[in-house]
Amino acid sequence: MKHYVQVASEAGESSDRPVWKDADTLDLAYVGYGLLIVTLVLVSYVLGAFKWLPYDPEYIRVDLLNAPPGSAGHLLGTDFLGRDILSRLIVSIQAYFLPGLIAIVISLVLGTGLGTAAAYRGGKVEVLVTYFNNLVDSFPRLVLILLVIAAFKPDIYYIMVVVGVTGVPVCASLVAGKIRFLRQKNFIEAAHVLGLPTHVIVLKHILWHHCTPLLVIQATLGMGEAILIETSLSYLGFGVQEPTPSWGNMVQAGANYFFQGKFWPSTAPALAILSTILGFHLLGDGLNSILEGKRGT
């Protein structure tokens, strides 16, 4: 049984309803959760940057090794060197936040540029971009990262540059696809007839008006990806090195004690990884279906 109600007795003039009013509840929940995670990450980043922490994350307390959560003021307990886990969790965000942003900026800027050039210029440019995309896509990402680490040094910024560059093809093909779709619509042609310079058309009519949601979504997903790579490399020991904390190396260090019944040193960062990556992905997903799904053009 479906129920329909007309609210106003006379339907009003065209209303300019915000997008979220027509959105699916589940999508809104995704976005809400995602925004919560993003806020937490941002707040933690600031706390970490100014060292506003409950304890010094590198202060070793030999008397409190692997102390369970809640003991002696350590909210999430301590690790195998007696360092406060909560503080280390917060500081860990320093390990990926800025590098992750760099990776995102690289893939978005390069991807948008190449995608726009390919779709708008066509011809040889398009062929070149396609070759570039295929070339990058044909290398497994992890192998490329390991190569870079071997050639230079295990630095998170090098890694993130690689992550950024390998993210270019996805972004480029998304932008190019969107532009090809838009070009079939006559308004781009009409803008040319109006006499607008090409850069105005590309920047304003195409990228600003029609690609911002796409890029925001890509950025969110890219951040999730960056965190995943950073933590997995740190877990393997190629990323952030002890004693600097990272969720990846925290899980790794804590894992040795997991089967001794001391699960918290590894479980806490693992849960942090899980909820954060999930948060970014759900945010991207939710935004995608709200902004691009039903109402997008």
């Binding site: 329909y4 109600v5 106003a8 339907a11 009003g12 065209s14 209303s15 027509d22």
Partner: peptide, 10 residues
């Protein structure tokens, strides 16, 4: 009748 969810009207 159809229903327009945007305008909440028939």
């Amino acid at each position: 009748y159809f229903y327009s969810p945007g305008k909440q009207a028939f």
